[in-house]
Amino acid sequence: MTESTKALSDVGVSIWLDDLSRERIETGNLQELIETRDVVGVTTNPSIFAAALANGERYAARLAELKGEGADVHEVIRALTTEDVAAACDIFQPIYAATSGIDGRVSIEVSPNLAFDTEGTVAEAKELHERVAKENVLIKIPATKQGLEAIAATIGAGISVNVTLIFSLDRYRDVINAYLTGLERAQQAGHDLSTIHSVASFFVSRVDTEIDKRLDAIGTEEATALKSKAGVANARLAYGVWQEAFSSERAQTLLAAGANAQRALWASTGVKDPSLPDTLYVTELAAPETVNTMPEKTLEALADHGVVTGDEITANVESAQGVLDAVEAQGVSYVEVTELLEREGVDKFIASWDELVETVRGQLAQAGGAA
C-alpha cells in the first residue's frame, strides 16, 4: 500500500473500489489493488456493469454458452453480473474473515426499475443473495421512501444491505431507523445479529454539482464563496447523525446483543469540477468507522499525491451546519436539491440499466439468432 492509502486506513476509513469487471478479476488487477492500494471492498451499480459488459471481450464465451442454453437477455445479465460478484467475493474472503465481516464486501444492486416497488425489491434482494451465495455479498437497495421498508425487511431476513442513493440528512435518519427496525425483526426471528452488516451510502459530489449550479445562477460574491462546500458539509453532518443515532439507547441495546453499527459510506467521491482538488471528497471526509468507495481515478490520485492529515470530520460537524445555513440563506433550497438528486439518481440508474439491456441484446444477436 502507499503512504497515503495507509494513512487513510489508519484513520479508520475502509477503502473500497467503485468498479468491477471480469477483466479486473481474471487479470489479477483486483488482487493487485488489494495489495498495493489497501482496497478492502468493492461497490457496483448498473452503470459499472453496463461499461464492463459493453467493453468486455472476456464475457463473450460465457454469453454464447448462456445463449445456447436458451437464456434471454435478462437471464444473461443476471448470470454474468452475479458470477462477477461471486468471484470478487472469493477474492475478498480473506479480508472478510480477518475483519469479522466488516470489510471484504462486494455489493450488487437490485434492479433500478424496482426503486419504488417495496415487495419487488425485497424479492429481488433475496434472489440476488441466494444467487451470489457468498457470505460477504451486500445487497444494494436505494433509499427511496418505498425502499425504507424493503431495507427493514431484508435486514430482518438476515441479509446484509448497502443502502444507496442517500442525499439528505432526514432520509439518512430514516435509513438508520429502517436498519434498526430490521435488526429488531431479525432478533425476533432468531437470526445471529453479529452476522448482519450494513453501510449507508451517502452521495457527496452530486450535491456540490447541483448546488454550485444554483449558486452560479445567483452570481453574487456571497454565493460564489459558498461553491463546492455543501457536499463535504452535508457528509460531515451525516457523520454527526450517525454518532447520535448509534449512541441512542435503542441502538446500544442492539449492539449489546451482538449487532453491528451501520457505517456511513461516502459515495460519488470522484470530483466533477476540474478546478477542485481531485482528492477533496476523500481527504476532507476522513473519519473513524467510515467507508470511502472510489472510482479508480480517485484512488490513484489518493495514492499518488493525497495528503491525509487525520480525522477531518469529528471536530468540524458543528461548523458544517453553518455552511448549509448560508447556502439556504442564498435562496438555494436544501430539500428541493436533495429530492431532485434522488429522482435523478434513480433515473440515471434506470437509463444505465436500459443501456446494459440493449448492449447485451446486441451481443446476443451477434452470437446468432434473436435475443
Rank of each mutant, 00 (worst) to 15 (best):
T2I: 09
E3D: 13
A7Y: 01
A7W: 00
S9C: 07
W16P: 03
W16S: 03
D18E: 12
I25Y: 00
I25K: 02
I25H: 01
G41R: 00
N55C: 00
A86E: 04
A87R: 11
A88D: 01
C89Y: 05
Q93F: 12
S100K: 14
I102P: 00
R105V: 07
S107C: 08
S107L: 02
A123Q: 11
A123Y: 01
E127C: 01
E130W: 00
E130M: 07
I139K: 03
I141H: 04
I141A: 06
K145W: 13
G147P: 10
I155M: 04
G158R: 10
T164L: 11
F167L: 04
L169D: 12
D170K: 14
Y172R: 04
D174C: 12
G190N: 10
T195I: 10
H197Q: 14
V199N: 05
S205C: 08
T220W: 09
G231H: 04
G231T: 03
A233E: 10
N234P: 06
G240L: 07
E249D: 13
A251V: 07
L255A: 06
A256D: 13
N260S: 11
A264D: 05
G270S: 15
V271K: 08
K272S: 11
K272E: 10
E284G: 03
P295R: 10
E318R: 10
S319C: 03
D325S: 14
D325T: 14
D325Q: 15
G331A: 04
S333N: 13
E339D: 13
E344A: 13
G345C: 08
G345E: 05
V346G: 02
D347Q: 13
D354F: 00
R361N: 10
R361L: 00
G362A: 06
Q363G: 06
